[in-house]
Design a protein around this nucleic acid. Structure first.
Ligand SMILES: [Zn+2]
Ligand SMILES: [Zn+2]
Ligand SMILES: [Zn+2]
Ligand SMILES: [Zn+2]
Lengths: 163, 163
DNA sequence: TAGAATTTGCAACATTATAACATTAGCAAA
DNA sequence: TTTGCTAATGTTATAATGTTGCAAATTCTA
């Protein structure tokens, strides 16, 4: 899985979605939290690709579904999903992406391709540690870290045609 | 300067501002760019503290100055200042802070105190390198990195009274 | 089933950012 | 010094993103 990991190469994405939903159900059960239809639907939409989706994009699809939804509907669902570690917010894009490491406790590092828009989430303990050290040198107690790297993914480096 | 660096302890902040403005003039000259009155004023406002300032906060002060300003005025000035490396945008706060490393080429790492709101910018080559490595492992070519850590600064860890 | 707690619907509003186009200031060649 | 170019600013409107507050409905618990 090292060079050219999942979102950057063709894969059975339906399996991604199915697995994400299954894991979500398990996790919510463990947390004694209710994965209601709206929340599950939002999660499914976020997972429709590995490109982050904006809250209002989600809203638009819900509306097209016939769901009578307003912004708070979406933001509440997204808050819930974030709280249970099922999605991450990408601050530099104001958008949301499904978490691909729901099993481990982690601080995600996100590789965002400027060209195709896909995002790969890494666990990158080396980076976390380096940040921890830098913070410790300043006697700063880290709580949460946002690490977002934009650039060009392997697919877009080689190709001339993009998605 | 290691433990308890600048923004987190009392310091002569006027000197911070003066230095920032001086460096800005130098840099703009070098870049053949015009540090117009509006741009300089915005930079000065951003530097009024080590707490990031929102675009509309800047706008409000400009208005109080008697300057007939609209949002584009501020955003344009901020774009200019960012382009010349004089301010950074903190994505997780939608706010702007003066760059404290205008001399070196750098990717900033920001320690954001949840309690007092101050931000300390570090250069942290160790972190940059770790990120580069993680990206290289995925054959990803990094372009720009956003590294923002929120937590508690040394001042707020010890004190019970905050700013 | 009654009561409590969580979730949703809904309306209005707040904040952040950009588009489009007219106007002006700075500068240099004719 | 007038002309013409470019960068910078003014102006208006609008887009995009995110929140608050309260009432109704649903789900859980006892
Ligand atoms: Zn997939
Ligand atoms: Zn994750
Ligand atoms: Zn200072
Ligand atoms: Zn900087």
């Amino acid at each position: 899985m090292s060079p050219s990991a999942l979102p950057y190469r063709p894969h059975n994405h339906d399996a991604c979605v199915a697995q994400a939903l299954t894991e979500a159900r398990t996790i919510c059960q463990q947390h004694n939290a209710r994965l209601t239809p709206t929340r599950e639907r939002v999660l499914e939409l976020i997972w429709q690709s590995h490109k982050p989706l904006g809250a209002y994009d989600v809203l638009a699809v819900l509306a097209a579904d016939g769901h009578n939804a307003a912004p708070p509907t979406v933001y509440r669902a997204l808050d819930f999903l974030q709280q249970h570690g099922l999605v991450h917010r990408i601050a530099s894009l104001n958008a949301f992406v499904g978490c691909t490491h729901t099993d481990k406790k982690h601080h995600g590092l996100f590789l965002i391709c400027r060209c195709c828009g896909n995002v790969l989430e890494l666990t990158a303990p080396g980076v976390s540690d380096a940040v921890q050290n830098a913070a410790a040198d300043e006697a700063f107690q880290p709580d949460n870290m946002t690490i977002e790297v934009s650039g060009t993914c392997p697919g877009c480096t080689s190709d001339t045609t993009h998605d």
